[in-house]
Structures are given as structure tokens and as C-alpha cells.
Design a protein around this nucleic acid. Structure first.
Lengths: 337, 337
DNA sequence: CCTGGCACTCGGTGTTCCCGAGTGCCAAGT
DNA sequence: ACTTGGCACTCGGGAACACCGAGTGCCAGG
């Protein structure tokens, strides 16, 4: 019983603090939430909560502020994801309607998410490794030079210019194109190395050097470029959120692909929400911020992740709702295209 | 004579203010620069300069600060572009060495420029309209669906998925590809509309509907996507530069492609530096910032522009030197690839 | 175990005061 | 005709200070 009330107090503290951004005191709590007990009782509970590290007092005579641990408990046990309003759903639909190009999907998504949450949105491009080959194209650029274009089923296009060891004619290009496509079409990218291992041996001797070069470039593209591209939007919202302290650090983190990678982090289950709160984040500049992430993908495969970065004192239920909803919509669109 | 000294005073004011970020008074000027006259004389000159609108007094008993007009005069007549140090040149070379992919060139360039100037760098992708067609590729994706890939001589690749009115076989795809390439290869993008105007008539009747669809998509790509892609980097430097006032507006501007477009503005001569100071900028949120831009391109054609955005009180000679140098290097690389 | 009462703490705000950098002007000097 | 030193004046900003009130912890009574 007593514990239930303490949790209710914690929830109230989080909610009030999020909406007012000021330390919340016992009296204010008793007034604004009908907890059915007096301020004095609440004070006792608050003392206990502080003892356990869920809240914290900036100075002796101020109200309480949730700690990271407090937010964690709130997110895990005291709140539930808040679904979007109808207007918001419609906004998403119109924003993402009728887009086919992958670049455009990603660009619009990241802006949409930033606008919806009024925070910084981060979106990762659909992973190469988890998608499959739709087409390989070889475009002659010169005697000994071709452009290799790799198209995946997620609409992603990778291009590389390749210098060849031999000159090569149009007919041989066509032949190689046909062979490559025959071997690779529909093949999951992770299994490409296996599929092509013995390919050169099955070709005429004269084609081998060129084929080997091309294959090594393809594998390189798959492996070395495995680092995925990540974009963000909504940095202006950072300036609005008053926490100007550390703003510089946050902006720096956002421009470091490596940090973003770690932030998006390991993949959980598809459409499972991940929340990183304050000091749980993998980068010191991001103390003071929380990150809400979700995976998205076409069908049941998770292809990449997206999320929202904001001050620790964000409205978690709403933010989580928005992230989840956007992830689902994007998944639908990718599946549909 | 007298005018010369006033200009010297203005130059000294700008230099001191840029380095200290504090209003500069007559005494400090007399001390730090050997102008050979007394503070009282300088005061007279300052009064004159203020009269003419080159400097301004924040309050009655403070030093002077240059106005936009003052900076303008400084840039136009009192300063000269400062060449980079050897170390900086080497940094540029190593940073941009051995890169072929256009995306990577642009990404690295924008980061390099941000790092070099410790400000926000802005780089525009090489223009579609001013480059020429290197290859058109049609990739069948399904019965009535193809991906159209347009490769330009600057290494840029545009891709669009196209739904066709008729089903189309591989042989007809190959034929169309050949015809399109024959018509368009090497053709400047601006003259594409002329070249293809009568193309459908020269085809077999059965190919016409498909050809018309494809051509309309090509033209759309050229015209509607005429809006060029622009990227920026170094937003963290904004937070460091103390002018936190309006930071939000600046960040907003940076995320608006339209604003960036106007900022990069009309094309001047290649490798001619353009400087926009404070209120000269086309967007109200950018009062308080200055923008230094230069065109870059392969050979003698200007393909796009790049620049640096910083507080009005930036070190113009150094910034201009960095922008010019980077623009030239990028030009060389584009020409070489 | 809750509650009302009470003394205590202390951060933030408003007020006042003072200092000094910087100015404009003037009369004297070259 | 400029330049210069002197001088009175202005005013922003920092230091010192007092005050207020929200908030607390604790205790005794219900």
C-alpha cells in the first residue's frame, strides 16, 4: 500500500517537473494531484524516495527533481505510451504520402519526427546488410572504367566508380551484367560472399580479371560501407529547450556518426521501444539528454532504427508514442514500395 | 591624410573587436596600435566615423563597435585575404586525398571547412543543370516498372522509380537505353529538352507511350529537382561562438533548404569571393551573421558554391582565405576525377 | 500511520551604492 | 588647422545587503 502511494508521488513529481521545469514541492503536489493525503505525508514519502535515489533536491530549501533513476522507474513502470491524436496521425500520412525515393523517405521522416516531437530526430538509413539485392548494373564510363550500381529491395542505391585491369567492350559488359544478376538477384546481402565465391571459375578466362575486380568492389561496398548513414534534423529545437548548458556538446555528438551509431545502438525486437536516460547514454556529452529509439523495417525484418533526442525532462509517454507511430508508418511505406 | 587615418582607426577597431569581442575605446586603441596620435585625436575620428555610420556605441559610456557598414568597408578596402598556413594546406590535402565518390567529396569538404574556420560550413552539390549527361541507365524492376538512373559528368547520380503504361521486355529496354544514350550522351543538361523533343516520333509506335513516360520523368528530374541539395556541418561551433542570441533562428535557417539556397545566392565569377554581412543577408534570422561564399567547379565552369556562416564579428581575412582555398582544392579534385 | 503546526534554511529578487571606463568638449600648444 | 591634455559627466555593471517566501524536517497529537 505504502509503496503504491510512493510510486504515485514519484509519477506526480515527474509529470509536474516535465511540464513546469521547476523543482516541485510537497504543497504543489497535494494541490495539483488529488493524492488524498496531506503535504506532510507527501514530504515523508519524498524523503524516502530521495533516500532510494529516485529524486533529488537541488538545494536545501527547494522542491524535488527526478533523478535518472527516477525517470527510469517512471518509464518502466509508471507510464504508458500515449497514442497519437487523430490530427497527428493525419499529419504523418500526408507528410509521407506518395513518396518513393528512399532518400526522400528518410529526409521527410526525420523532419516529420523532429516537428512532431519538437526535439531532435535521428534516422538511420535502412541497413544494407539486412536487405537483399534487387539489381546490379554495370555502366560503361570509358574504355577501362565502369560505374557499378547496386540496387537493393529497400530502394537504396550504392554506386562506385571502378577502374578495370582490362579494356572491356559493351557485349562483355552485358554478359557480365547478366551473369551477376543471375547469381545475385534476390540474394540477401549477407549471403553475397558465399554466392559469388566460385563465380570467376565459371566464366571464360578472358572475363576473369575484370570479374574479380568487380566482385572485390561489390564485397567492399557491402563490408566497408557497412557503417550506415545517419541523418538528423530539428537541431533548432535544442536551442528552444532551455537546457542551453551542454548544448555545444550535444551538437558535437550529433555531428559524429560514431556517436550516433552507438546511440541507436544494438537492435532490439522490431518496433520495440528503447529508452536511454541521461547517464545511461554512451557518450558523456549526452548526459542531460534522453534518447527514445525504435526499429523500423519492411515486413517483419528490422532494417534500421530511428529515434528522438531530447532533454532528460522530456514527456516520455508522448515522445514514445510519436516514435513508435512514425516507425510503423515508415515500415508500411517501405513494405509497400 | 586625415581620411587615411580614420580608415586606419576603423581597421584597428574592427581587428580589436573581432579578437576581444568587447567594445573598443580610444585609449585601448592608442595603446595597442601605434597610430602615432593621442586618444583624444582618435576620439575625434571616432566621432566622425560614427557620424558616417561605420561604428556604433552600445551605450553612452562604452567603446565603439563596428556596424555592418563598417565591416563592409573593412572587407572591401581595408583588408586582404590571408593565405592559409602550410599546415592548413597540408590538412586540406590529406583530408581530401584519394576520394572519388561525389557524396564523400561533399561530406568531407563540408567538415573540413567547418573545422578549418571553426564556424558553420555550407556546401552545395554540384549543379545538375550546369553539368552534362554521361549515361542514362534503365533498370527493369518488374513487368511495368523500371528504375531510371541518370549519371552526370560530375559523378552525380539521380535515380527515380518509374511506373510504365505498358509492360516492357528486356529487349525493348535495351533498345530504349541505346536510343536514349545515343541522343543524350555528353549533352549539357540544359539542352536536354531540345534534344529529346522529337524523339518519340523517331521510334516505333509500340515504344512511344513508354518513351514519353520516361522522357517526362527525365525532364521532371532536371526541372523540378533543379533545387540543389545543400549540406552543412559545424553547428557545434555556433554554440561556442558566444552569440547565443538568435542561435535558434540560425539553426532554423540552416535546416531550411530554401534559405540556404538564397544564401548561396546568385553565381558570381568562378572563385570570386562573395561576402554577405549581417543585414545584407536575405533572411531576418541571419542578422548578426555573415556569410562568405565562393564558387567551385571543375575546369573553368562553376558548378556550385560553398561557404561559411559565422558571427558578424568574424575574422574576415582568415575566413575568406580558407573558403577560397577549399573551393580551389575541391575544383581540382572534381576536375581530376 | 497520517496530519497540522512550527521553526528554520536558503536561493532568488530587488535596491542601493559605488567604481571606472569611456566620452565630449574646451582651451592651449605646435 | 590639427592635435593634445585636462576635466566634468554619464552610465552600465558588479558588490553588498536585506527581504521574502517556498519548501523542508521534525514533533506531538489524533
Amino acid at each position: 500500500m505504502v509503496d503504491d502511494r510512493k510510486l504515485a508521488v514519484l509519477r506526480a513529481i515527474v509529470e509536474d517537473y516535465v511540464s513546469t521545469n521547476e523543482p516541485v514541492g510537497s504543497k504543489a503536489l497535494a494541490d495539483r494531484h488529488n493524492l488524498g493525503v496531506s503535504p506532510a505525508t507527501i514530504r515523508n514519502d519524498m524523503a524516502a524516495l530521495e533516500e532510494q535515489g529516485y529524486i533529488h533536491q537541488p538545494h536545501t530549501s527547494a522542491g524535488r527533481v527526478p533523478t535518472d533513476k527516477g525517470y527510469r522507474l517512471f518509464v518502466d513502470r509508471l507510464s504508458q505510451v500515449k497514442p497519437l491524436t487523430g490530427a497527428e496521425r493525419r499529419a504523418i500520412e500526408t507528410f509521407l504520402a506518395g513518396v518513393v525515393d528512399l532518400d526522400e523517405i528518410v529526409t521527410r521522416t526525420v523532419r516529420l519526427l523532429a516537428q512532431l516531437t519538437r526535439q531532435v530526430a535521428v534516422v538511420q538509413y535502412p541497413s544494407l546488410t539486412r536487405s537483399s539485392v534487387r539489381h546490379v548494373e554495370i555502366v560503361p564510363l570509358g574504355e577501362r572504367r565502369v560505374m557499378l550500381v547496386l540496387i537493393t529491395n529497400t530502394g537504396r542505391v550504392e554506386q562506385r566508380v571502378v577502374d578495370l585491369p582490362d579494356a572491356i567492350g559493351d557485349d562483355r559488359v552485358a554478359h557480365l551484367r547478366a551473369v551477376l544478376n543471375a547469381s545475385l538477384d534476390g540474394c540477401g546481402l549477407s549471403s553475397v560472399p558465399d554466392r559469388v565465391a566460385d563465380l570467376p571459375e565459371r566464366l571464360a578466362a578472358e572475363d576473369r580479371p575484370v570479374a574479380v575486380t568487380l566482385l572485390s568492389v561489390i564485397l567492399e561496398t557491402l563490408v566497408e560501407r557497412h557503417e550506415e548513414k545517419i541523418v538528423f534534423a530539428g537541431a533548432a529545437n535544442l536551442a528552444a529547450a532551455d537546457f542551453s548548458v551542454g548544448l555545444r556538446d550535444v551538437l558535437e555528438a550529433l555531428e559524429e556518426q560514431v556517436v550516433l551509431m552507438r546511440l541507436l545502438g544494438e537492435t532490439g525486437d522490431l518496433s520495440e521501444l528503447t529508452v536511454r536516460i541521461g547517464s545511461e547514454n554512451p557518450y558523456t556529452g549526452l548526459r542531460g539528454t534522453s534518447f527514445v529509439a525504435a526499429g523500423y523495417g519492411a515486413g517483419d525484418k528490422e532494417l534500421a532504427r530511428l529515434g528522438v533526442l531530447g532533454p532528460t525532462r522530456m514527456d516520455y509517454p508522448v515522445t514514445m508514442g510519436a516514435v513508435r507511430a512514425v516507425a510503423r508508418y515508415v515500415g508500411q511505406i517501405l513494405a509497400g514500395s
